[in-house]
């Protein structure tokens, strides 16, 4: 086997894995690391269910090779809550019933988190365009957009939540 050895950081945890060169980061997360929270809805960048944050940037993990993870910092849905404390977006998604089947939910949450880290006061239009690469077939997006707008509002009100949410785990 021609495997590539990769050292990376996933949700603050130093992680090493071996993969074949044609495996995507999504394949690695799901099949090698057991992090199945990132979903594959298409494998070709069209649905956003596989969204992760790499070095602070939102990307589709299906459009990145596992080998490219070397030396990067990767955030997935599994790292979004701080232990038992949900990220405000996670809580608002529950409160607003912003999920039906829930398969798109991890991707939406990761993408929305990346939006709110850049823009704490997005308009409805900004939310809709930022999330246009995340497909949801169940909800018609209404409750998702409301949940994101409401989270932004709440995070603006209490900068504390914002800080805990943005807090990164210190690397060992």
């Amino acid at each position: 086997m021609f495997q590539i050895h990769v050292s990376t950081s996933i949700n603050g945890d130093d992680t090493e894995f071996s993969c074949e060169a044609d495996e995507t980061l999504l394949d690695v997360l799901r099949d090698r690391l057991g992090l199945t929270g990132s979903k594959e809805g298409c494998g070709t960048g069209d649905c956003g269910a596989c969204s992760v944050i790499v070095d602070g940037r939102l990307v589709c993990s299906c459009l990145m090779l596992g080998a490219e993870a070397q030396g990067r910092e990767i955030e997935t849905i599994e790292g979004m809550a701080n232990g038992s404390e949900l990220h405000p977006l996670q809580q608002k998604f529950l409160d607003h019933a912003a999920l039906q089947c829930g398969v798109c939910t991890p991707g939406f949450l990761v993408a929305a988190k990346s939006l709110l880290e850049r823009n704490d006061n997005p308009t409805e239009e900004e939310v809709r365009y930022w999330l246009a690469g995340n497909l949801c077939r169940c909800t018609g997006y209404d409750k998702i957009v409301r949940a994101v707008l409401d989270t932004a509002k709440e995070m603006r009100k209490s900068p504390k939540t914002k800080k805990t949410a943005a807090k990164k785990r210190v690397k060992a």
């Binding site: 199945t36 979903k39 809550a81 949900l86 398969v103 991890p106």
Partner: peptide
């Protein structure tokens, strides 16, 4: 009433197991 759903937590944390998630 609008109660929280029983599978909600698993679904917002990525823990819920869908068709392709089991090995």
């Amino acid at each position: 009433t609008r109660t929280p759903r029983p599978d909600g937590l698993d679904k917002v944390t990525g823990r819920a197991q869908f068709g392709a998630d089991l090995t």
